[in-house]
Design a protein around this nucleic acid. Structure first.
Lengths: 162, 162
DNA sequence: GCCGACCGTGCAAGTTTGTTTCGTTATCGA
DNA sequence: TCGATAACGAAACAAACTTGCACGGTCGGC
């Protein structure tokens, strides 16, 4: 009676989760170090990491850069409300948003808005240009509300594990 | 008094930016490879990376995990409006939000809201518990609006470089 | 103009880390 | 019981990172 946790098509046991927990905090941690933390050998850890990268559990390995250190970077939130409910309109908008480099995050949501965007630009003029391209040029955008971030109190992309 | 210059006064030349551009896409890229790309030697690249890590330009090196692969994870947006304008109330809220693991991102913003939160939980019941703890238990929270993410169309944390 | 401190670089070891190989063990189903 | 599969650890191996050192520019004072 061994419990086999089923997770969205991929089986991850508690060792995998323990490894993920380390990697999503610091993916430069040596495999040997992880190995002793989870009571495995380095090759075992290496194989599990490789497998999780191949199956897409680990989507990417990235350096997190402080935008404040880069001259003039502004973070903005935008709630976008669409005119039509038709699926192809949403798909078009999604593709448009996803294809824009300044759009860091795009979520399709329920509630008073249809999309929420997180946008990072260097100057407000860049954002104004973006609004023309993304919103005013799109007839299906009924309304959009912008919030300007004054401070990144906390930023993370971690997932609750265990 | 080991206070670092938190201002955006760190001088990054074109080479640093080129290196960052690579690392924020894939920080596992060998230094030797980066070196060829930017026409430097591997040690030079290594020293620049180390310096940027020490000065805080590079905040962290992390593995990005697909939340969809981890059980049922729900992403939520919350606009929080505060009652009082007093600074200590904001600070208390900031500390409260930042200290909550489920709060992935917290931004202090201008506009009709004061804070915008990105929250990731496993179940809605978890979120309800959070609302009690973060919002209802705090008298200074005047109002909050929740958006439930149905789809992560795009997720990134990159900064516009060059 | 000259000199010296400073900074960043490349090269060449030296060290750490990641990867592969291989033999062993455990589990499951025929 | 037997054979297949999967996962493991130890050790050998390959690759990457790190350090020491000398060289060449730049800048400010003499």
């Amino acid at each position: 009676m061994s419990e086999k946790p089923k997770r969205a098509g991929v089986n991850l046991d508690r060792l995998d989760l323990a490894i993920l927990k380390v990697l999503q905090r610091d993916n430069k941690t040596p495999q040997r170090t992880i190995a002793e933390m989870v009571n495995l050998s380095a090759p075992a850890v290496q194989r599990r990491i490789k497998r999780m990268e191949e199956t897409g559990v680990i989507q990417a390995n990235v350096a997190v850069i402080d935008p404040v250190m880069i001259d003039h970077s502004i973070t903005l939130f935008v709630e976008v409300e669409m005119e039509s409910e038709r699926a192809e309109m949403f798909d078009a908008a999604k593709r448009s948003f996803a294809a824009t480099p300044e759009v860091q995050q795009c979520y399709y949501v329920t509630g008073e808005a249809d999309f929420i965007l997180v946008i990072v630009v260097r100057e407000m003029a860049d954002y104004e240009a973006l609004t023309r391209k993304l919103f005013f040029a799109n007839n299906n955008v009924k309304r959009f509300r912008t919030f300007v971030s004054m401070e990144r109190v906390k930023v993370g992309m971690t997932v609750p594990l265990e």
